[in-house]
Simulated assay, not measured.
Amino acid sequence: MSAAWLWIGLGGFSLLGLLAAEVRRRPLARAASKVACSLGFILLALSQGLEGRFAQWVFAGLVLSALGDVFLIFPSGRAFLAGLVAFLLAHLAYVGAFAAEGSPGPWAFALVLGVGLGVVRWLWPHLEGWRVPVLAYAAVISVMLLFALAAGRPEARLGALLFYLSDLFVARERFVRSEVLNPLLGLPLYYAAQYLLALSVG
């Protein structure tokens, strides 16, 4: 457990540096802190052991998420699309993990569908040429959340929910309104999500 706290500490310390870099608009410090924070959740998962299908699928999702984090360091549209694909694959890996834990009920389906349609309606006027990839991503992350809600692991359920919420701030930053509030709220949600998912493999 001491190793786990070491990597959680790395994540918390790096997150503080990342938020400070966002406020001060220091791209090099932002990149370094982001890589360190993402490395932390990978090392945390490794410290828990990766025995069984669930752990291995979650670890694949964490690695793909870290790759997406690296892509999103760069401001270009091509890098954003690469990040979107990496995170889409990460969510598919998480679905592979959660699907073995249980089947979602109709109430969960109705809830996730309603929220997803509301998010798409909010973003739709702002998407322009991004409608197809964003719709695909929204569908996959919604399926991920749906199966997570049926999983018997509370860290996985909460992690998936926080991941979903954090992506709303990524979408707002990219498509609706760019302001420092988006990363200040979205990044803590995102990294809390990934560290919870990493803990769920133990």
Rank of each mutant, 00 (worst) to 15 (best):
Met1Arg: 13
Met1Glu: 13
Met1Asp: 14
Ser2Leu: 15
Leu6Gly: 13
Leu6Cys: 14
Ile8Cys: 14
Ile8Leu: 15
Ile8Asn: 08
Ile8Met: 14
Gly9Pro: 04
Leu10Lys: 09
Gly11Glu: 03
Gly12Cys: 13
Phe13Tyr: 13
Phe13His: 12
Leu15Ile: 10
Leu19Gly: 04
Ala20Glu: 11
Ala21Ile: 09
Arg25Ile: 12
Pro27Cys: 10
Leu28Met: 11
Leu28Gln: 11
Leu28Ala: 12
Ala32Trp: 10
Ala32Arg: 09
Ala32Asp: 07
Gly40Trp: 07
Ile42Phe: 12
Ile42Val: 14
Leu44Val: 09
Gly52Pro: 00
Gln56Ser: 06
Gln56Gly: 04
Ala60Ile: 04
Ser65Thr: 07
Ala66Ser: 10
Ala66Ile: 05
Gly68Phe: 02
Asp69Ser: 02
Val70Lys: 02
Ile73Trp: 04
Phe74Asn: 11
Phe74Gln: 12
Pro75Tyr: 06
Pro75Ser: 09
Pro75Trp: 04
Ser76Lys: 09
Gly77Met: 12
Arg78Gln: 11
Leu81Pro: 07
Leu81Lys: 10
Ala82Val: 06
Gly83Cys: 03
Phe87Lys: 07
Phe87Gln: 08
Ala90Lys: 00
His91Gly: 07
Leu92His: 06
Ala93Val: 05
Ala93Lys: 04
Tyr94Pro: 07
Val95Trp: 00
Ala99Tyr: 02
Gly102Cys: 08
Gly102Ala: 08
Gly105Leu: 00
Trp107Pro: 05
Phe109Val: 15
Ala110Lys: 04
Leu111Arg: 09
Leu111Pro: 08
Leu113Phe: 15
Gly116Trp: 00
Leu117Val: 10
Leu117His: 00
Gly118Ile: 03
Trp122Lys: 09
Trp122Cys: 09
Trp124Lys: 13
Pro125Arg: 06
Pro125Gly: 07
His126Met: 06
His126Asp: 08
Glu128Ser: 13
Gly129Ile: 04
Trp130Asp: 13
Val132Gln: 14
Leu135Tyr: 13
Leu135Gly: 14
Ala136Arg: 08
Val143Gln: 11
Met144Arg: 07
Ala148Lys: 05
Leu149Pro: 12
Gly152Leu: 03
Gly152Lys: 03
Arg153Lys: 10
Glu155Val: 07
Arg157Leu: 11
Ala160Tyr: 00
Tyr164Gln: 07
Leu165Tyr: 00
Ser166Pro: 02
Ser166Asn: 01
Ser166Gln: 00
Ser166Arg: 00
Leu168Met: 12
Arg172Val: 12
Arg172Pro: 04
Glu173His: 14
Arg177Glu: 15
Arg177Val: 12
Ser178Lys: 14
Val180Asp: 06
Pro183Ala: 05
Leu187Asn: 14
Tyr190Val: 07
Leu197Arg: 05
Gly202Ser: 13
Gly202Glu: 08
Gly202Cys: 10
